[in-house]
Amino acid sequence: MTMSEFFYMNGYAFYVWGSYGVTLLVLLIEIAMVRHRRQLALRQLRLMNESGDE
């Protein structure tokens, strides 16, 4: 079973890789968003701390 045969998915390539591609994309976006939210929260807290120390 060659690589190209595998990706061809017996003609269903669009549907199979369309499903897995979007799923992977969605999960990666969520991971990026969750990490970003944490950085924002920490940056916000550091600012509050600095302004508090004056």
């Binding site: 998915m9 017996n10 003609g11 269903y12 549907y15 199979v16 499903s19 897995y20 799923t23």
Partner: peptide, 11 residues
């Protein structure tokens, strides 16, 4: 369904 069924693993 030949290969199309493989969507089951995420669906």
């Amino acid at each position: 369904q030949s290969e199309a069924y493989r969507i089951i693993f995420i669906h």
